[in-house]
Write a protein that binds this DNA or RNA. Sequence first.
DNA 1: CCGCCTGCG
DNA 2: CCGCAGGCG
Lengths: 337, 337
Amino acid sequence: MNNLSQTNRERSVRNHNSNNHNQIAALYEEFISVTNTNVDIAKKMLQENQWNLQKALGAYFDTPNNGQASASNDELFEENRKFKLLSWNIDGLDMYALEVRAQGVIDVIKKERPDAVFLQEVIPCSLSQIQTHLPEYDVHLGNVQNYFVVILTRKATLTVQRLDLIPYPGSQMDRNLLIIHARYRNTVNIDLMTSHHESGTEENSSHERMEQLKLCFKKMFDAPSDHFVLFGGDLNMRQKELYKIGNVPAGIYDLWFANGKPTDCEYTWDMQLNTNKNFSMSASRPRARFDRLYFRPSSDGSIKFQPVGFELKGLDIIPSVQRFCSDHWAIQVSFSV
Amino acid sequence: MNNLSQTNRERSVRNHNSNNHNQIAALYEEFISVTNTNVDIAKKMLQENQWNLQKALGAYFDTPNNGQASASNDELFEENRKFKLLSWNIDGLDMYALEVRAQGVIDVIKKERPDAVFLQEVIPCSLSQIQTHLPEYDVHLGNVQNYFVVILTRKATLTVQRLDLIPYPGSQMDRNLLIIHARYRNTVNIDLMTSHHESGTEENSSHERMEQLKLCFKKMFDAPSDHFVLFGGDLNMRQKELYKIGNVPAGIYDLWFANGKPTDCEYTWDMQLNTNKNFSMSASRPRARFDRLYFRPSSDGSIKFQPVGFELKGLDIIPSVQRFCSDHWAIQVSFSV
DNA sequence: CCGCCTGCG
DNA sequence: CCGCAGGCG
Ligand SMILES: [Mg+2]
Ligand SMILES: [Mg+2]
């Protein structure tokens, strides 16, 4: 019996208690996490089953075409739980309809319910919106000058032990590496690292990016070996630069590759599809895989944490303002835990 | 007896003819070429020796400390003749005191008396000055739009057989390679090639420069093997780029290297010494060896053509306007012929 | 934070 | 034709 099973037991106890608001939210959380559905289905199934999670899950999976109905609920519990991480440069430097666009970001997070979120190019005004509208997350940040990176951790699943902020000494743009040392469901140590690496094509920026990336890879190895390490963000990375630093070190996995290199998720900054910037009349319509997520597994092989998905989010234009949330797409990875 | 000796004989014949202006100029030319002096000394010595070149040379070298007085005049003839080539980006895009600066360029050429001159960044207005004030040179050019490259050949020593203009297909700046197929003293075939390679540090410019340089090296090899080939100009070259294309091919010689890498002639574009641009208040004071000359010897080993000198010219500020002739220095190479 | 341009130090 | 900033398509 591994640590995750203990967590399940603990939660079963909670489920038999009173129906106050926090506990209903926890039931939704659990139902959605196991069934990979949404809050509407969770509400319906739980209401129909007297707010008993096991009964609601049983009823859901007994319905034909819902999940894998042949397995027992406990097995489904084990098999279907996901850890989700979403990373997004939300372009807080673009003032056009920023408040509406930031609300769009919040809506995506509410819908996706990732356990952790890496945000880049956040400005104070957007940060306030996030803190107001996403109370289900803890908000972690280093500096709050100009624009900055933020890590959100889902209160229900992650407890934060420590924060590290490592400035890049060579950065001309005040970029830094933000690290959150967290525990997932009180059992799994996960170090969450995000960064917004030096922008632009200039030689100095390119060189600085390589230094920043090398530092990050080193930090991933510096973490205790029994921790899982997730690092990524807007790395502004070019293939040549990765090649020049010797490609991704052994023991670290690019989660786009680990999830089968889905070609429809390749470009995270795509001026052929994203119209937030004025490239429509331009001769060049560049696109690139600037945003990436890397994974260093734990040395503890008994802990299940398998990459099972890579998706782009934020692909929809916001009708009211005819803008996307950002010039970058969000990238989201899932792990079977 | 090689071809150069024949040329000497031909000239001796000319020297006994009448004293019209052209022939006096030819006598000056010869005297200066052999003695490495200047027009004032040539005039004095020739006047004192009844315009007899042999007597004037004899008198000059019999004077203690003048040349190597122990050798015979004929030997000195052989030993001291030089072929000189000067290359200069004269910054015709800088309008500040351009006419005075172009006159400065003309003055340097008149003083140095190179057999051939490669000019880059010439504009029509400067071209007119050159044509007016340097009648001792033939002027060769391809396009005359915006700014362009020009080759000057000394009428007394070079006869031009053909001109080729090869546009660089990938250039964003209408750059091209200008080739003059010439004969030196009616005996030695010399192909003169100059170019102004793509400017700037951008990736596309850098890549285009490498393509341009590869084409030029190829053209140097395409010339008939019994020709000497001299190629160079403002190549805007970076060490990395030369490395990336595999360095200078075997059989081609960088004349700065061939002349012992004189460290005081390394930087041809030097914002630490040249004040034409506004770098005085700038944090960076860049300098580079942008201007280079390459040499492919003839397969005919009987023809003497040995690199014997590399110099910078145009190092003096013009007092009246407090500017240098150009933001580039001129580079000048000499061959013992 | 694409390429390219202009202007500044 | 240096690096960098700001603006444009
Ligand atoms: Mg951005
Ligand atoms: Mg120039």
